[in-house]
Design a protein around this nucleic acid. Sequence first.
DNA 1: GGCATTTGTGAATCCTACT
DNA 2: CAGTAGGATTCACAAATGC
Lengths: 395, 395
Amino acid sequence: MTVLRIGVSSGAPLKTRRSAASAAVSLVTPTPADPSGEPAWLNTILKGDCVAALEKLPAKSVDLVFADPPYNLQLGGDLHRPDQSKVDACDDHWDQFESFEAYDAFTRAWLMAVKRVLKKDGSIWVIGSYHNIFRVGAILQDLGFWILNDIVWLKSNPMPNFRGKRFTNAHETMIWATPSREAKYTFNYEALKTFNDDLQMRSDWQLPLCTGSERLKDASGQKVHPTQKPESLLYRVLTASSKPGDIVLDPFFGTGTTGAVAKRLGRNYVGVEREEAYIEAARKRIDAIEAGSGASLDMQKGKRAEPRIPFGSLLEAGLLAPGTELTCPKGKHLAVVRADGSLVSGDHSGSIHKVGALVQGAEACNGWTFWHINDNGARNPVDELRKLLRSRLAE
Amino acid sequence: MTVLRIGVSSGAPLKTRRSAASAAVSLVTPTPADPSGEPAWLNTILKGDCVAALEKLPAKSVDLVFADPPYNLQLGGDLHRPDQSKVDACDDHWDQFESFEAYDAFTRAWLMAVKRVLKKDGSIWVIGSYHNIFRVGAILQDLGFWILNDIVWLKSNPMPNFRGKRFTNAHETMIWATPSREAKYTFNYEALKTFNDDLQMRSDWQLPLCTGSERLKDASGQKVHPTQKPESLLYRVLTASSKPGDIVLDPFFGTGTTGAVAKRLGRNYVGVEREEAYIEAARKRIDAIEAGSGASLDMQKGKRAEPRIPFGSLLEAGLLAPGTELTCPKGKHLAVVRADGSLVSGDHSGSIHKVGALVQGAEACNGWTFWHINDNGARNPVDELRKLLRSRLAE
DNA sequence: GGCATTTGTGAATCCTACT
DNA sequence: CAGTAGGATTCACAAATGC
């Protein structure tokens, strides 16, 4: 590995805690620079503050940017699961900002630095959650970026809401934008359509979290980075909006998911990262990857599961009215539907499955086939309504 | 139908094209006002500009707000499908703004007006697309609103991207927020979980677009409103975050989807709308709906709603005798019940919760489910006794 | 080894009534 | 208003452990 010190930035200090960080920028090359005339920073990690490091790159030199900036989570105290185990929160210093103003200043600064190095026909992706994405999106627009899409990453296995106080936070948002309205950006429409079973790729992507062996762990088994993104996500981003040989910049490189996928896909990368531990992990990770072999260029298919239809949807859709009476197949048991999708039968109330089990004294029950509606004398299971709604949703 | 002119607003003119609109505010009641002391504006549509109209409502008077503001779409000329037919875009004058600054000023103005009339423990939903939602979200935060969730509405049948230049825009985003971090907002967690087949509801909602007979059409078959939302969306919003009898405000009432669902679900509504044609359509629509009432509106309740039973009551009721031995689920920890309802386990003594936590070395513990009684070899949690006592007390 | 069961964990703005 | 104590609260996977 080569480390080139390419100068110390004078810096344009930000009015945030981040600004206190070292402005020194050094260049880390996992593999020796190619003597063929490629720039020295290609396929390297710049160590240092994002804005200062980007000053070392020429203007209009990168084709694509993927940025996973700090989210500015504003967490209260500790959070425990119902089994009393403590949630390993992302409380790292780099995610702390004093105010929205400080976060905005930080965001404006790195986006301006990125805009300088982005080619005029390049594009940028930024990922975030509701804590920060609205500020990022507004500042992107203020800086003249042109939003092409917002993409929602639907997590198939998100962390639940343990206290039952909100909806499960089951997605993150990515903004895809060009530096100007006129940009002739790369979008591999046909490839994506083919990938998606000949249907246009939609703005909602179902992908699992980064877990298991993909998740980088240190010697003690702890995760190296609190927010490592899954390679499948980057795979789809790079496949959609870059070409082989393109240069992909990640200004918050972390443990190098962007670099890893770029290398696999035959793209060049350049990363910026401040924390030595992350750089070290990223370097090892990327070195172990074989660059752009043909077979690996196949995209991982995100399984598009058949939509699950909750019982309550029948009421929302107007297929069932609150107050409707349901019976068991033989008409012995009776229950009434409430507006919230619960059933009431005598003293019992709850979901169609729970009440079905309770009235039978059974452990479990499939409410869809147990509960029936009286249709002009004929008893039909509510499952018939589900089929109807499913066909509507499939249109 | 009653139309009450309740005054002409002096207005606080906005620096947008909207400000040119009439500041006259009149009150439209689909059904005559109730003489029972309800405010005259309840279940009515206020005709006029949003900010001016909201000045007619008392401060802290509504429980929930649902807002579907103009999206500020920046369409660059007509869009044509591959077959050259023209797409019926939303190019109404009310959706046009001269700049982001103008849109921001408009957004700030109506959000401030809404914040004044919202109760301190109320909440607000705003829906938008990537054209405007980032600006709305950032301004919400700037005004001190506290975001609880962002919810993505996944459209099962979105309009495809005809030119193949972007991903199919298949979702819209809703922000759910309270007027302050401290708000004790309504969230019918248990009801939603029951609704969703006993799984907690996530932040991604798959619902079809408003089409078919639900979509309001005029005499010539044209859609009355370009962005009519499906009732199913409002059904879920109101079920999640309001109670029967609550007052729901929609400051961009349009053709009254919010009012229609509010009436169906036994909530009160108040709408604000500028266009007479929309008001007329909304009025007819809501008049034709039967108001929800009665037990079918009751929502599934969780343990939090149950009356609290002190542990000592079990002793008072004779369900438990002093000196009884309790164990943890696996029988490892042992404790003895004292006559005052406290437990003793080794050196530890105190409430069932405190001792449960101490013997486990945990921060907290629910003693009701932790401590078990030996019933002829079977271990049953003391919570079973609480249930028994509760059912006795309910008789 | 094979299968069943238990344990661990993920970008989280996560309580409330009473004294 | 602050402090204290009661006691409510989780889903999908994958890895680890047990039989």
